[in-house]
């Protein structure tokens, strides 16, 4: 069912945008004028590269431009997927507040799959130890209050496959 508050609407991208995405999704060249280097590579003016990136950033097609740290290398060894069964009428409002907590890296509302899965709010938590993650989860529990009926934290027991999401 479509949700009027959903922010997953598709954005229009043309073939030149796709070439630009293909040329930059692996990373920007580490040169003083990276956008000019990309422009040269795909054969369009640098002004066009910058204007298109600016447009994609404004539209949300680009979430951000910057560096992406490796959690583990920074000592964030405990990464837990916290999941919450939150009253339907409150989940959107509370989800917004959970997403703003600075230890939450992703926060989504997803469908329940009863009876195996009663949870509808997912928040990825990053901490240096499991104790830290547990403490973060307690903060979320306090924030959700009586609207939350059940919760769990699923820790990764092994990365079986991890390839970057590629846009083709």
């Amino acid at each position: 069912m479509a949700d009027p508050t959903s922010n997953s609407a598709k954005l229009p991208v043309d073939s030149l945008d796709l070439r630009l995405i293909a040329a930059t999704q692996g990373g920007l060249p580490l040169v003083p004028r990276p956008y000019h280097a990309i422009a040269e590579k795909i054969g369009i003016p640098a002004e066009e590269v910058m204007a298109r990136l600016e447009r994609m950033r404004a539209s949300g097609a680009i979430r951000r431009i910057g560096l992406v740290p490796n959690h583990y290398a920074l000592g964030y060894h405990a990464n837990g997927m916290s999941v919450w069964d939150v009253a339907d009428e409150l989940v959107d409002e509370l989800g917004e507040r959970v997403g703003r907590l600075d230890f939450v890296s992703h926060c989504y509302r997803r469908p329940r799959r009863r009876p195996q899965w009663p949870y509808n709010l997912f928040a990825m938590l990053h901490g240096k130890t499991r104790e830290e993650v547990t403490a973060y989860a307690e903060e979320i529990r306090a924030l959700l209050g009586p609207a939350c009926h059940a919760s769990d934290i699923l820790y990764s027991q092994g990365i079986l496959k991890k390839t970057g999401l590629r846009i083709t």
Binding site: L11, L53, G60, L67, P69, L165
Partner: peptide, 25 residues
């Protein structure tokens, strides 16, 4: 320094982070 941090694996990448869902994927 960005180059060194990438080589050392402290950074996984440096550049634009695309929202794949909204780009049709």
């Amino acid at each position: 320094r960005i180059d060194k941090l990438l080589q050392a694996g402290v950074l996984t990448r440096f550049g634009p982070l695309f929202n794949a869902d909204r780009l049709g994927g």
